[in-house]
Amino acid sequence: MAKVLIVDDEPHLRLLYETELRRAGFETMAAGNATQGLEFVETMKPDLVVLDIRMAGMDGIEALQRILERDNTIPVVLNTAFSSYRDNYLTWAADAYVTKSSDVTELVTTVEGLLKDRMATSG
């Protein structure tokens, strides 16, 4: 079962994403800030990271770079309220970009799609 790491400083959103992704059949874990998120990437080796951009402390863009510095094969989905980050070239390195919405369908389908691709390429 694929493991998805959710990094978001909003506990209710973490819970929502975990609930919906589990319902979709994924194993989930959640971190409340970027530093903890980086730790989990090291220790728990998730198959995919859902990363919030605007967080207290280290923000998602910096976290994205640090993740990719360690492992540039792990898919990262940026999930944020700021649609304007689409135009920020620092975010282009992410595999997908999902605008935060109460309808998490887009997030779930994006995660499913990326993981399917990964399974396919990794054999």
Binding site: H12, L16, T19, E20, S102
Partner: peptide
């Protein structure tokens, strides 16, 4: 809003 709407959907 994401939390409210998301859980309502759930």
């Amino acid at each position: 809003l994401v939390a409210i709407g998301g859980f309502a959907r759930t």
